[in-house]
Amino acid sequence: MTRRPLPVTDDLDTGGFFEAVARGELVVRRCDGCDAVLHMPRAYCATCGSWEGRWQPVAATGTVYSWTVVEHQVHPAFPVPYTVVLVKLDDVPGTRLVGHLPGRPALRPGQAMAADFEDVDGTVLPRWRTADVSPAPAP
């Protein structure tokens, strides 16, 4: 199979997210100036202008906000059908992350989700699954 495209993990804005994920932890960016959650993660807070922020650990659990089943082949590394799911984080409900589920799993809004962490060619990524499936151990 074609190798999966992988994210840049040392970006100034988002690098801390992938550092945490490599440790088996999920984090959101918080501004030190006004405490806003910066999502997508950024070094700079557009609300108060602060460059100071921190990475706050959050539970790797959430609920299904919405989803769509992709039937049209776009990239050879992602064979169809697969399901793109928007997960609303339990600890920070205004923040959503994207998950990739193989096939056409039966989902419903509000369904419990949990992430484990998988090593893809040396890059660790969160992997969302419906919560009734027990997560694999962190790498």
Partner: peptide, 17 residues
Amino acid sequence: PNPQPGIQFPTLFRESI
């Protein structure tokens, strides 16, 4: 509300999609 630079389709954070 609260648009962000470089984010064309803010499905990850806008209040309701």
